[in-house]
Simulated assay, not measured.
Amino acid sequence: MKSCLVVDDSRVIRKVARNILEDLGFEVSEAANGQEALDVCRAKAFDSILLDWYMPVMNGIEFLKALRALPTGKGPIVVFCTTENDISHIQAAIEAGANEYVMKPFDSEIIQAKFAQVGLL
Rank of each mutant, 00 (worst) to 15 (best):
D52L: 08
L50Q: 01
V118W: 01
P56T: 10
D107R: 09
I90F: 00
N19P: 05
L67M: 03
A116L: 10
D86T: 13
C81A: 12
S108H: 03
M58A: 08
K44S: 15
S48A: 15
F80D: 01
A17W: 00
Y54T: 08
L64W: 01
F115R: 01
I13T: 15
L38T: 15
G34D: 02
S88Y: 11
E22F: 07
E36S: 12
V12Q: 11
S10T: 12
S29W: 04
E30G: 13
D107M: 10
K2A: 04
P105M: 13
R42C: 03
G60P: 00
A31H: 04
Q91K: 07
L51Q: 00
F106C: 09
R14V: 00
K65W: 02
S48E: 05
V40T: 14
D107S: 10
C41M: 13
A43H: 10
A43E: 15
F26S: 06
A43K: 13
A43I: 04
G73K: 03
D52M: 08
A31F: 07
D39Q: 08
L50I: 13
L38G: 08
E30M: 05
D9K: 13
E109D: 12
F80G: 03
D23V: 10
N85D: 15
D9N: 15
L38E: 00
A45G: 09
Q91F: 01
K65G: 00
R42Q: 13
P56I: 11
L70F: 01
E95I: 08
S48N: 00
N19H: 08
I20G: 03
D52K: 02
W53V: 03
S108G: 14
S48W: 05
V118I: 12
R14T: 07
F80R: 03
A98Y: 00
Q117I: 03
V6K: 02
D86P: 10
N19W: 06
V7A: 07
R14C: 05
G25R: 08
N85I: 14
R42T: 09
A116E: 05
P105T: 13
I49P: 02
A43D: 12
M58Y: 08
W53K: 02
V102N: 02
V57Q: 08
F106G: 08
E36H: 11
M103L: 15
S3T: 09
L21A: 12
V28H: 04
E27F: 14
D86K: 10
R18Q: 13
S29K: 05
D39Y: 12
E30T: 09
E100G: 05
L38C: 09
A37C: 01
V12P: 08
D9F: 04
M1G: 12
V16G: 06
I49R: 01
I61R: 02
V12C: 06
R14W: 03
V16L: 11
A116T: 05
E100K: 06
I111Y: 10
D107I: 11
T83F: 15
V28P: 07
C81D: 00
I111S: 03
S29E: 09
I61D: 00
I13L: 07
A92S: 14
Q112G: 11
I87V: 13
W53L: 14
H89M: 14
D86C: 10
I110W: 06
I90W: 01
N33P: 07
E84T: 04
V12N: 10
